[in-house]
Design a protein around this nucleic acid. Structure first.
Lengths: 214, 214
DNA sequence: GCATATGTTAATAAAGCTATTAAATATAAA
DNA sequence: TTTATATTTAATAGCTTTATTAACATATGC
């Protein structure tokens, strides 16, 4: 490395640094608008070095995207520590999912963007992950069926319930620019709003399936 | 026009045809990935002609985008033909919104994409439209307050209710590639699924606010 | 028919991007 | 130190893209 005297901050090897910064830039601008030139500039290295380590922009992206896609697809998870209350299970799923996505607020846009603009790549990666998601769905389905049988929950498919949760949570992130504009929120204020909105989302998800009179 | 013998199909002037086809391509690939060369190829004219009529790619896009953004922002609307039942008002809003977006299934992605990648342009256009949306919101707020006062609806902000509807409806379109992949849907099958899902969405929205025991 | 407007095209300048190559530099090993 | 190996850079080929220009074609008004 050719830094004068001080060492680079994040990492002492360019290979890792490139990965870190590429992730930031790809999340910010998507695949198409990201250039290896810009990544190099932000990293502080020559643009050719990116191709030295990763050969093509596409390969670099793929290396990051698969990991991110996996994180996205597994962000819905049970918190099944002997909690028998279905209401609390659902509350846990909603809030846990919202928390995980809050740590990667720009991820939903990247996923949606790539899915839409590059369906071939998406399909290849989705194949590898399909099992994980379907497993989660059958698990949810099992719990759900018990509740429906007990007439505590209206008749609904696990897939629809999952869609409800994903829709309400994820929309908070893809619509951030619009909501921030309308409400005049800064980024921090927006994230604060998201946190509060979690309660509303749970009430909606739960109210949308519960048969109990509260 | 220099077509040999037959006349062009859609329009007999290139200016309108360019607008029509540009809309299709922009909706398909977003601003960045759309090239004036491809538009010209699909229109069947010389690429320079696009610049002759619209000067820059940016101006062409803006002409279309403002219209589309307006359509998007006004897609939530009351169907207030003397219907006193709030439940039916909500049902109407949900289904009507879903229908309108169904006619422009690729619009949500374009809006979100541009909002995210080009916030400056978005802001300029949003300013012009702000009033329309806020008007709609206060109208919803008025109806809502009545219901809350009558204890038929739980205490909820109009904005949150609107977000619920938008989230659940719009997510169906931005997540189409993922859902189609998981479920193995063709485009037509997917649109059929969306239609059915409208009922689930209404049940969720309504269940999420209603205090009545059904 | 002629002159002028408008519409259309071919050619190309300018700029940006990816990827490669060969040379330079640093690092490690012997 | 010397040699081999890995890292980094400068230079640039080859594309693609937007936008402009000048020339050509067609229509319109007189």
């Amino acid at each position: 490395m050719s830094v004068k005297k001080e060492r680079p901050v994040k990492s002492d090897n360019f290979e890792q640094l490139i990965l870190d910064i590429a992730e930031v830039v790809f999340l910010e601008k998507g695949y198409a608008l990201t250039t290896t030139t810009e990544i190099a500039k932000r990293v502080g290295c020559n643009q050719a070095l990116i191709h030295y380590y990763f050969r093509t922009k596409d390969k670099l992206f793929e290396k990051l995207f698969e990991k991110k896609f996996y994180a996205f697809m597994t962000s819905v998870s049970f918190n099944r520590d002997k909690n028998p209350d279905f209401k609390e299970i659902i509350r846990g799923i909603v809030h846990n999912h919202l928390n995980i996505i809050s740590e990667n607020p720009k991820l939903p846009f990247l996923i949606i963007s790539e899915m839409t603009l590059n369906p071939e790549r998406f399909r290849v990666i989705a194949e590898k992950i399909e099992g994980v998601v379907k497993g989660m769905l059958t698990e949810l389905d099992r719990e759900l069926k018990k509740e429906i049988a007990a007439k505590r929950i209206r008749n609904i498919e696990a897939f629809d319930l999952l869609l409800n949760i994903l829709s309400l949570n994820i929309f908070m992130f893809v619509s951030q620019p619009l909501i921030s504009y309308v409400k005049g929120f800064s980024w921090d204020e927006y994230m604060e709003f998201v946190k509060k909105r979690g309660d509303e989302i749970f009430l909606t998800v739960w109210g949308g399936i519960s048969l109990e009179n509260e």
